[in-house]
Design a protein around this nucleic acid. Sequence first.
DNA 1: GGCATTAGTTGCCATTTGGCAATTATCAGG
DNA 2: CCTGATAATTGCCAAATGGCAACTAATGCC
Lengths: 199, 199
Amino acid sequence: CNIPELVNKAPLVEFIQTHVTITATKAGEIADRFTEKTVDKDNILFEEGKVCNEYYFLVNGFVRAYTFDTKGDDITTSFYTNNQVVCELFSFFKRGHAQETFRALTNCTTWYITFEDLQVAFHSMPEFREFGRSMLVGSYAELKHRMLSMLHQTAEERYINLLINSPDIFQYAPLKDIATYLGITRTSLSRIRKELSKK
Amino acid sequence: CNIPELVNKAPLVEFIQTHVTITATKAGEIADRFTEKTVDKDNILFEEGKVCNEYYFLVNGFVRAYTFDTKGDDITTSFYTNNQVVCELFSFFKRGHAQETFRALTNCTTWYITFEDLQVAFHSMPEFREFGRSMLVGSYAELKHRMLSMLHQTAEERYINLLINSPDIFQYAPLKDIATYLGITRTSLSRIRKELSKK
DNA sequence: GGCATTAGTTGCCATTTGGCAATTATCAGG
DNA sequence: CCTGATAATTGCCAAATGGCAACTAATGCC
């Protein structure tokens, strides 16, 4: 464990500590199972059709996940930024082929762990298991919240909330991709923005 | 372990075996941690505002989960039927107050395990951990699929798919609740049904 | 800097969905 | 069986969102 690694891993250690009750030492042991990897802007972290084998912790950067609908149109399923786990969870844990692609919208610094290493670490470190579960439950809750916004909010309300809660998305992602994330067309998003600018 | 229990637990044992690679004996050991509980029609399995402490396996019956939007209107978040896990996962695992209520639409037969017992069992039985994770990942994937349907399908398409994939929902739930589940008003659902009946 | 490509906006109009109120259908309880 | 309550449908119209095409703005590349 050399000094640059120690420095770079600090965000990951902190992240682990904010999600499970754990000593810095234990959190450090978990973090040690991760390997650093940088991904350049516009490059792919994980591609559709493959079995996801890396569980990424995004230290720094911006990532868009997308898939294609039945007409072949590109749909944004999620955005990821600093201090988030980037992973196609179903493919990763169930070892199936994924239908999503994760692409870097900026240069990204990540720490990742492979499925095999994670399985081993889960087995030997109860705290890591707890952490993994916490991540899974957190992702589920976040998605449920977004689902609820689709069920009862208008496109304008969803747009405003995104603007308030995730302003950085607007800094890195084109509006056309934000539109599909909100479940509307870029034309409608454009008009919603125009209406709001009047107010 | 008496005979009625053995008989009744068979669906749970089978369910476990279809989700993780495990012997019948081990699956039976897991199932033994669960306790039977019946819930009568219209009664509540879990109520909003509390910390969810039971992880239910629904052997037989039909359940609706719902919450309230900002206007105070009732919104269906999910339906559950035979051989499904019924639980507010975020509240259960993160020990927070839930914003959902689960109500029986029919008489229900369930097997449940409490949070404390589940924690103990997770710790001592790796297969149970694997099962728990499989459930979590499965719920996540299902929700993601539904999210995607909200992003790119019309209300009519979502209705048709629900009709095909979950016809039993229409047997037990009133249309007004199905409408909120689909993210539309009961008026619109009524019109969609009328249009389709013409074809 | 110029040019090609992609992104974003706007006008025009169609389609989808919603809101409200009246009406009809269904269902549970006395 | 009657009756009140709730669910479902329908008409009328408004609002939200989409489709297409034209236009403008931004961006990347040589």
